[in-house]
Structure formats: C-alpha cells, structure tokens
Design a binder for these strands. Structure first.
Lengths: 271, 271
DNA sequence: AAGTCTGTATCGACTAGCGATACAGATATA
DNA sequence: TATATCTGTATCGCTAGTCGATACAGACTT
C-alpha cells in the first residue's frame, strides 16, 4: 500500500491530551489552529460541517472559529462552488519564517554556488522530528518542474537528507524516530525495515552523506548531507537530486558526494 | 524616502476595532495570530517583552500565547542567542494554501509553457486588495536568484500585475485602492501620483496588459496580465520580468505582450 | 412541496483566559 | 562582590469571553 507525496498526511502535530491540563496552554488557539490544520488532509474546499467533523469541534464552535479566521484572512471562501479554503494570509507567515530563519540565510549563497557547479536540482530541507520539510529549491537547468515546493514534507526515515540527519543523532534517537514513523512505502524500493534503515544510517555516519535510490520518487537518485547548528545538532540537510536516466547511483555518488559535502561544510563553517 | 521590498511592512490585516463588537469574533484567536503577525515587522528574533509590546498584549498574556504557539510548533526559540521566531509549522499551511488554490493549479501548466517560450522569469501573483502576493515563480534559465519568493508581496498600485488587475476593476474601486495604498516609492521611477496611476490603468485597459519600468526594482522591466475568475473578477496576474540590460521597454513589450496575453487567455479559458 | 444540504446568527451558563504578582537564571551596570 | 535589569517561566483568583443549544434563510436534491 504505497502512498503519495502530494497529500499532507505527515506528522501534523495536533493537540495533545496532556496539554489540556497545562494552565499555560490557551485552548482557543489550539482549537483555531486545529481548524486550520484540517485542510492538511483535504483535497478540496471543505464545508463548515466537514470542518467541524474533522476538527472534532461542534458546528457552532467551528463556525465561530471559521468566522474569525476568515475575518483575519486565514480562511477564504471558494469562489466557484461552496466551502472554505486556507486564506492568503498564511503566506505572510511563510515569508516571515523563511526570512528570519538563520539556516536558510546562511545556506542560500552556498546552495546557489552548489547549483552552478552541480547543475542538478538542489534542495534545502529542515529537520522536524519525523519529517523533513523543504524550505528552498533551486531547480536544475533543464528541469521545468514547479519551483514551489516550499512547505512540502517527507519522512525522515526514508529520504537522503533525513538519513544524513539521523547520522548525527544518537542510536536511541534514531530508533525512536524509526519506531514512531509511519513507514508505509512510497515506491517498492522504499526501505522500511528498521534494521535496514539503521544500517543505512550507519553507512551515512561513515560516509558523511546518505544516498537514496527511488525510495520516494521512481527514477530519482538523491544525495543528502546534514547541516549542523549549535554543538553539532543537525538542523537540516542539503539534497542533490538527479535522474536515473542520466546517472547510475555510483556515478551520481562519485560526482556529487564531494561537492555536496564541501557545500555542507561551508555552511557549517559559517557558524 | 524609498522603501525596501524585503521587509514586510505591507497590508498586514490586523484586528479591527469593529470586530471587538462582533459576537462571532473569537478574540483569543485574533490575539494569538496577532502575536504571530508581530514577526512581520521583525528583522531578528523577538524577546517575550518585545512581542508583548509589539502586539499590545500584556507580558503575561503574550507569554501564555507564545507558550501555546510554541507547543504547537508555530513559534520556535532561536538556537543561538535568545528570543523567538516563527515555527516550521507555518509551512504546513503554506503548502495547504498553494495545493488547494484552484488558480495556481490551472495556471501552472500554462506558466511552464510560457516560461519555455519566453525564457524570462515568470511569476504568478494573487490579488489581495492593496497588495499582490507572489504565489509561484519560475526562474529564467540564466537567473540564479532564489526560487523562494513565495509569500512576498508588493503593492498593487505600482506593479505590472497590480495595474493589470486594476484594469479589470471599476474606476471607483481603482480610486479606492490608490487612496488607501501606502504610496511611498521603491525607486525614483515609481509612479505614485494618483492621476498618473489612473492613466496607467486606463492604458492597461486598452492594451490588455500593463508594463512597468523600474518601478519596484532598478533595472527591471515587467509585463503583467490579469487572470480572471468568476464573472471577470481579477484573481491575480501573470508577470514576465526581464532586465533592461538586455531589452528596451518597447522591445520587451513587443516580444512578450502577445505571449503573456495568450497565456492569460489560456488560463481564463480553463474556467 | 418536502427534504437536506449550505452558511449564518443569537443568547444564557459556565468555563477558560487575562492580569497581577512572583521567581530563577543570565548578562550587564555600579 | 553586589545591585540592577534583563531573560523566560509559573501560579491563582476574578471576570470577561467562549461553547453549545437552538433557530433561520437560502440553495440544491428528491
């Protein structure tokens, strides 16, 4: 039972039962953002009742939240047909996040340089527990794919960047991530067995990078190198991605591993 | 007194006094999102007290909101140094917005095609009252600029896309937008005088597109064509942007106006 | 015309959030 | 070394604000 990369069925941190006990935890906020998060699983505009059901709130509360969110621009009505959609206002926060993120800031010039030399697609992803979130993509020359992957996330356990990141964690942390991950495969090449994943992580530890072949996308080979912050903690990863129609995995590795590792080092050196 | 395109000092819809009277308006949500919006004017991590001051809330309330937002991943601590930053969770909503937006969906293939023919930078922007928000960018062959402009916004009154959009509004609406806009210039070529802007809009009405020369960025010539929805209402615009080092404005217009207009028509025809 | 969806609105009961106040750790003044 | 002022965190009682029930109008089905 493979799954798609398109839909957002990943680690959407929803409200935790414990948090209801926390006196510092403002419930209304959680409810509101929970309502907004409902769209993560949606494929089309949602009606008020659908929102209410999906968010677990009653119709009344859902309507009042939607009303407010709409007034603030975080939710819009669908023009054609009925229902609601996320509003354009969310993009303001996107740009704030990207702009203020120090890792992105210091990685950008290095990535531009890497892309020039590599002439393949370069991505920057950010580590977020069970997943790795794309923050920037520099498309390759020939590739006409949509530049806007910002915000897309893929599981840590089965991506080149994720594995490179795990290589900088303790075994216990790696095991924890593997155990908690939804390990449904994307392709029939996706490695999901905990032992095999652990082996890949050990390999990445020795190499200083991770290579994945068709684990997320058929025909794609990807090489990931972790980017580190404070005291060696992995914050994200650089990805170089190419097509198997042009490269064998080994040729890809030989060509791009040095470049990518050097780029990551350059970023790490900046602090 | 020119201004920068980088910082987010645009139409951030904050809470309106009237809304306090609205019984359906959930204040806690507005407060929370207002706190998140505080980062729109920030250039660096914000301390709790800075957040409190900027959002108008007391320290206590601000702390409690930040606490919750942090638990949910919408706010993070800055690793190095102190203070808070927007959290990675906001990118989830970004991808939801982009994914569910019908205009982006139907425009994408056409834009890819346009980029192939034009070989210049192609943008898709969405109309949001006083501003126009970039939703997608397909970079040109040679351009190494960062692909991640998603969420950036520029004023409607002085951009090619914005003017093309205004060409599809009534005169009263255009006047309203001009009047309410913060018309500080970006460059010394920025046209800010209401009458001149109106003239440009009239011109755009006749041509079916708008051309701007260095009004936002020095050295840039841009051509915008509106994209329409339900009953001719403008939803956004296609932009083609080039460099004055390669094109005279007239040559640019002659070369790309037909292509861009045709692309916009293609998108409009899809519904 | 009866039925079932939309989205919207009102109001009282009670809970959940605000503000005041306090504390601990880090960095900066004297 | 001491005093001051930041940082972020935590507690608790009063009351303002939210939830849920209930109701209504318009748009599609049947």
């Amino acid at each position: 039972m493979n799954r798609s990369i398109i839909s957002g069925e990943d680690g959407a941190r929803l409200l935790d039962e414990d948090q209801v006990e926390d006196p510092l935890f403002v419930q209304a906020i959680a409810r509101a953002l929970h309502v907004l998060s409902v769209f993560h699983k949606a494929e089309q505009p949602l009606s008020l009742t659908e929102i209410a059901e999906a968010s677990g709130t009653g119709r009344s509360a859902a309507q009042r939240v939607v009303h407010t969110l709409r007034a603030l621009g975080y939710i819009e009505r669908d023009e054609t047909g009925r229902g609601f959609l996320p509003g354009i206002r969310v993009l303001d926060h996107t740009v704030d996040y990207l702009r203020l993120n120090k890792l992105i800031e210091r990685a950008t010039p290095v990535l531009l340089d890497l892309r020039k030399n590599a002439r393949e697609r370069i991505d920057l992803s950010l580590f977020d527990d069970l997943r790795v979130v794309y923050a920037a993509r520099m498309q390759s020359k020939r590739e006409t794919f949509f530049a806007t992957l910002v915000g897309h996330s893929v599981p840590t356990f089965c991506t080149s960047g994720g594995r490179a990141i795990m290589a900088h964690l303790t075994d216990a942390q790696v095991d924890d991530i593997i155990a908690r991950s939804d390990r449904r495969p994307f392709t029939d090449k996706t490695i999901t067995a905990p032992d095999e994943v652990r082996a890949m992580v050990r390999e990445a530890r020795q190499n200083g990078y991770a290579l994945t072949v068709e684990e997320v996308l058929v025909g794609e080979v990807a090489l990931g190198v972790a980017v580190l912050g404070q005291g060696g903690r992995p914050l994200g990863a650089i990805h170089v991605a190419g097509s198997l129609s042009e490269w064998t995995p080994d040729a890809f590795r030989a060509r791009f591993a040095p470049l990518a590792v050097e780029a990551a080092n350059a970023i790490n050196r900046l602090r």
